[in-house]
Design a protein around this nucleic acid. Sequence first.
DNA 1: TTAAAAACAGGTATTTATACCTGTTTTTGT
DNA 2: ACAAAAACAGGTATAAATACCTGTTTTTAA
Lengths: 226, 226
Amino acid sequence: MEERITVGLVEDQFLFRKGMKAILSSWQDLKVVFESEDGYSVLGKLKEVEEVPQVMLVDLSLPPDGTKEFTGKEVTQTLRENFPDMKIIILSVHKDEDFIAQLIECGAHGYLVKDCDPGEVYEAITSAFHRGSYINARTLKAIQNNINKKTSPRATLFSLEQLTKREEEVLQLICMQLTTEEIAERLFISPKTVNGHRNSLLQKTGANNVAGLVIYAVKNGVIKVM
Amino acid sequence: MEERITVGLVEDQFLFRKGMKAILSSWQDLKVVFESEDGYSVLGKLKEVEEVPQVMLVDLSLPPDGTKEFTGKEVTQTLRENFPDMKIIILSVHKDEDFIAQLIECGAHGYLVKDCDPGEVYEAITSAFHRGSYINARTLKAIQNNINKKTSPRATLFSLEQLTKREEEVLQLICMQLTTEEIAERLFISPKTVNGHRNSLLQKTGANNVAGLVIYAVKNGVIKVM
DNA sequence: TTAAAAACAGGTATTTATACCTGTTTTTGT
DNA sequence: ACAAAAACAGGTATAAATACCTGTTTTTAA
């Protein structure tokens, strides 16, 4: 019998992680050798372990009480740098094409949405291991559309830059229903400055108004809502 | 050997559902006899099935593309009315006490957060079946605090009234970053009417502005954010 | 059928947010 | 030490949201 493929799981929801482990166990040629609940501890845990998994399934839900959240992109990049041979498969609820494309660009070897079936997870793992990647139709489409966007002139204007610390701080206060003046008081700065941050936020996130900003904050884990 | 407890799963995420099924299968005295992916089809499916589950695990994540979403409260109420003997255990990511208390008031027999461990799920199922309910410390606290709120004088002023259909509709459009005028166009009504709904929303939810409304919408599942 | 709730529509006023500018100072990385 | 980015602060204008009213029509439920 051939060596089994060793698999690692990064997933914050305990139940889902255990469920996934149970599912994967039904394939004889897979072996779950690593589990982690968040992006923080992955690296540390991996260095202490004798058996480094060949394929890592990474879920992108954020840890619910993260002071500084570790996004899927960061986890992917970190893993790629430290374990160049490891294949990384992203598991996420996001169907957004930009989002998918960004992950692949960061070095992920595959992308699965969470409503796929167990068979596809298996296929992704084996494909990533044997052929180096698993790109399904949706992922391919996302990558292609993203390339088109990049070559189009609008992309450079609208590109999703990262928020600065101050912007993130302002965004959190906006989500807490504070007005510009209240935020200014809270941060001991001029309302005009807050206004500037507001505008940067709207531009960077592509939102039209506070509603869009709040949604962005929720989606990107800038605030925790549950 | 005694009869096994029959269990049903309502959960939109395919992978999570399968994982949960795999987990539950490790207990010999449980038997998963029913699965549904959304609140809509539960009732219909249950009527076509020969074996109605004794305990139903209901996840509250919303179906990702629901035109008219079926909330956990509605599912609970509907099940209670049509299957009075069935025990209902809610499985959710929400840790909000009001939210938990509301579900229990709607007739749920237990409430679990999604990061609990598999053993607790098993305990909840058996406890609900044999003793009629499973109330853990968190749930109990939520119920108690909710009772306190109700008897306090402020509660009557601030009480979370239910949103009307129209209000919910307007709220969704607000979250989609539409302005009052755009919403009016979309719904073929006067901006003044939309304004009225806006004000009702602010009052009913206790929000100060759109940011608060969006947060409310996310917390209460009025919109789906992922 | 009748009362209550919901949906509708209008008014006035004020506050806040958004969309553009301009520029300086401070921090950061190399 | 230098350039770049971030944080800061000001201006002007307009658009939108919020806070209060008033009332009518339609729908819902008892």
